[in-house]
Amino acid sequence: MHEWALAESVIKSAVEHAGEQKLKKLKETGVVFGELQAIDKEIFSFALEELRKQFPAAAACRFKIEVEPAAFRCKACAHEFPLKGLKKTKDEAEFIHFVPEMAHTFLKCPKCKSPDFEIARGRGVSISYIKGEK
């Protein structure tokens, strides 16, 4: 349940940003899951439910999760490519799940085979917006 640690970072970060914006209560937080990290939505949501007990400002917050497709740009040949179609074993997918940068170890540009590519979109977990009451 490594998702728990990331869920904690999301709720803590959302509450901190709400505080900076002088929001007393969080109503909604947009959470983006990068396709590359393949976060388990069910486990993540369960963790958020448990964690919200520790964060009163997020007690009634709705966490709206969306998945951002991963996109890569090769630094060697400038080819742009998606995650779909890239070969990886179950273990390799698990390692990328823990540390998305392991993509550079296990994946390569389908055109020139270089591991030197940029993860342009869809890497990991981020917050896209927060809404709340002042």
């Binding site: 490594h2 630094k75 823990f98 540390v99 998305p100 940068e101 392991m102 170890t105 591991p115 030197d116």
Partner: peptide
């Protein structure tokens, strides 16, 4: 160590990627 996740293969990361990986591991 990063070797837990690399199967002892090369980890060819640029600076920003290193930073991301370190932040990820420090956070989890």
């Amino acid at each position: 160590s990063v070797v837990f996740f690399s199967e002892n293969k090369a980890v060819p990361l640029r600076g920003a990627n290193v930073s991301d990986a370190i932040i990820e591991l420090l956070a989890i």
